[in-house]
Design a protein around this nucleic acid. Structure first.
Lengths: 219, 219
DNA sequence: TGTACATCAGTGAACGCGCGTTCACTGATGTAC
DNA sequence: TGTACATCAGTGAACGCGCGTTCACTGATGTAC
């Protein structure tokens, strides 16, 4: 079922006809993916042409179709690759709420989110759009990436709630969802805010504080 | 310069050749806009065809081009119309932070955002995408809509800061931006969360509390 | 009140480009003996 | 070590559809006298 990239002991990669890919083929496929990503950061999905991807990758359209069903297919794969990076972020998130240096660590979380978006902006944007338009495959990879974030945050909030530090009227999962939404939007949007004269450090710092405040109930 | 819809004492509307539109023409144009909006909630901008819009509006493609330069042009107009609804929301926002019933009112703000998105989901989605892709016109209308929200929130935060209720390390504008990002993402995303089993009331309530907490510094 | 003309609004039908997609083929690399 | 054959990887060139866009035209509505 899975077609994913970086799973351990991955199934051998196959092309559109089910043939196993040799090393050279894998390289070409990778070049096509990079080309897709590159172009997507310069123009919209709407304007993305198979021919251009092929040219950018130094190959021909026919080759593209050897590896992908269509443009969406390639984009989905890229989205899955990007989403596979999330676990590292989630780890930070789970250790971030106690101890002296929690502000520092919360900043790390916010910063991690922003970095993640900065390196996959185009893909994540398209992924979210497709997910919101209702495409199942994009919804799925999105949920796979964000689910653990929700879970992690909700767990933390719940535990602070049990300590009586967060009010009982807060719904942990709802709050977690709100925070995740917040982090994501922020990350996708920060450069526009910086254009408005809000310095990045202020943004990160302020967001880290909001995060701590909401999760732990104290400033 | 302005081409906007609901400005007071608007310039007379004109078609692509600069001819003033009579009442019948205005109706047709309106039908085309509605058709565009409708279709956009069923499929992506990528799949939106002039021919389909025309058919949906019960007219011909040639007519479409009498009123709009292209599909984007129509979509931009719709985005401007949607963004013209923001001022009402901003008003709620400015009166929402003192008094007994502030939780109730904060809920109203959150709910207002969600409703706004619910009635213009497709358009606002496309607007944001286009803005993030760097399209100036979409950026502009987006900023016009969200700017006052930022300003309003920042003003409130600043005043609570002066009262010593919000810590001085919070950057009012950054916090306002974070909250605006949060509200917007939440509004665009809530139905997915509800699908995950988070009840809408819980979501609204929890978000209202986060809002109050962050703006006023107290729960 | 009727006729002539002007403007408004809308469209059928066609043109032609751009693009997705495929097919039949070539050349490169690996393997058996 | 050399030859024959199998598989891998890639592509040129064409086909044809779908769609954006326009043009020359028709019919409807308004206005002058």
């Amino acid at each position: 079922m899975s077609r994913s990239g970086s799973r351990a002991a991955a199934q051998p990669q196959v092309d559109q006809n089910g043939r196993v890919l040799g090393p050279k083929a894998l390289q070409t496929r990778e070049r096509l993916l990079r080309a897709t990503e590159d172009l997507l950061s310069k123009r919209s999905l709407r304007e993305l042409r198979v021919v251009d991807i092929a040219r950018e990758a130094g190959t021909s359209p026919a080759t593209f179709y050897q590896y992908f069903k269509d443009v969406e297919d390639a984009v989905l794969l890229l989205a899955e690759q990007a989403d596979d990076e999330m676990p590292a972020l989630v780890e930070q998130l789970e250790a971030a709420w106690s101890g002296e240096d929690r502000l520092e660590r919360a900043r790390g979380v916010v910063d991690g989110f922003i970095r993640h978006w900065d390196s996959h902006r185009a893909i994540l944007r398209v992924r979210n759009l497709a997910a919101e338009e209702g495409d199942r495959r994009f919804r799925r990879t999105r949920r796979k990436a964000l689910g653990p974030v929700l879970g992690g945050l909700a767990g933390q909030i719940e535990s602070f709630q049990r300590q009586g530090k967060v009010g009982p009227e807060i719904h942990p999962y709802a709050a977690a969802a709100a925070l995740a939404a917040f982090l994501e939007r922020l990350a996708s949007y920060h450069s526009e805010l910086e254009g408005l004269g809000i310095a990045r450090d202020d943004l990160v710092d302020t967001c880290a504080r909001i995060l701590i405040q909401t999760v732990t109930g104290e400033a």
